[in-house]
């Protein structure tokens, strides 16, 4: 290349890179082929992390002295519906957790039936996707026990959690918070349906009467106010099709980082 044309080339390349950085990344983020590549990256991250973490490694557990004096409540702090207020008033005696979908034995458990099953207590770190962390103690029923009682069918791949907190923005059709985990994460020993936090009944702000804890995942993968667990083969026809409320808004389904 002659000096002159090389200089024009370099100039153009630099100008192009600059334009890409400043405006382009926003536009690029909306393009199908770009989101396609970013989706492949998510799969790569998930596979790589599974390779190292496997199914059984445990999230670190902490000492009582590490428990945060104030555990931040994020997302819904009170579902605010009449039905929910009625449950609060009656101490959740009528709250039920249904297990439905691809199971041999559909279940509908009351809180006292859930609490009658063996429990696990763990002091773990909650990592919010926003970047902060809080340590708290959780007691609950391992989800593996509940699922085993319902006998998943061989084609069940995901557990979808339906919650009581409405996420409807004005003008939208009604919809509620929902989330999903693959079955491997759902039966992980630290994945529990937690009904106690720091030794007391789960507060409303943290998902009373029962929330999911999946300790190797970020906070948005651990729904509060859980009412139904549906086992499915794929979630592409549920709500926005991405497997969760935040996922439908662009967050990755894989929430391990």
């Amino acid at each position: 290349m002659a000096d002159q044309s090389r200089r024009t080339f370099v100039g153009r390349a630099l100008a192009g890179a600059g334009a890409l950085m400043l405006g382009g990344c926003y536009d690029l983020s909306q393009k199908k082929w770009v989101t396609g590549i970013l989706g492949e990256v998510e799969n790569l991250t998930r596979r790589a992390q599974h390779l190292f973490a496997g199914q059984h490694t445990l999230a670190p557990e902490y000492a009582k002295s590490d428990i945060a004096p104030v555990f931040r409540a994020n997302g819904t702090r009170d579902p605010g519906t009449q039905e929910y207020a009625a449950h609060v008033a009656t101490g959740f005696v009528d709250w039920r957790i249904a297990v439905t979908g691809l199971v041999e034995k559909p279940l509908s458990l009351s809180m006292s039936e859930l609490k009658a099953l063996p429990s696990r207590t763990q002091i773990t770190r909650h990592d919010c996707v926003e970047g902060w962390s809080c340590i708290g103690e959780w007691k609950g029923t391992p989800l593996a026990l509940v699922l085993a009682a319902a006998k998943p069918k061989p084609n069940a791949r995901y557990a979808v959690f339906y919650c009581a907190d409405p996420m409807t923005v004005e003008g939208d059709p009604d919809h509620y918070y929902y989330e999903s985990l693959d079955l491997a994460e759902a039966v992980h020993p630290q994945t529990i349906l937690a009904y106690e936090m720091n030794g007391e009944a789960l507060p409303v702000a943290h998902g009373a009467p029962v929330r999911l804890r999946a300790e190797r995942q970020l906070g948005y993968k651990q729904p509060k106010y859980v009412q139904r667990i549906d086992l499915v083969e794929d979630f592409s026809r549920i709500a926005g099709g991405k497997g969760g409320y935040w996922e439908d808004l662009g967050y990755t389904w894989y929430g391990g980082i």
Binding site: M21, L22, G23, C25, Y26, S29, I37, L38, V41, E42, L44, T45, V129, E130, W246, L249, G250, Y251, T252, I257
Partner: peptide
């Protein structure tokens, strides 16, 4: 920031893609 508007989900996806 990238993207310019506050958009955590997309910032994370760009971050992890270029981290790889």
């Amino acid at each position: 920031t990238l993207p310019g508007p506050q958009w955590l989900a997309m910032a994370r996806q760009w971050h992890f893609a270029f981290a790889w």
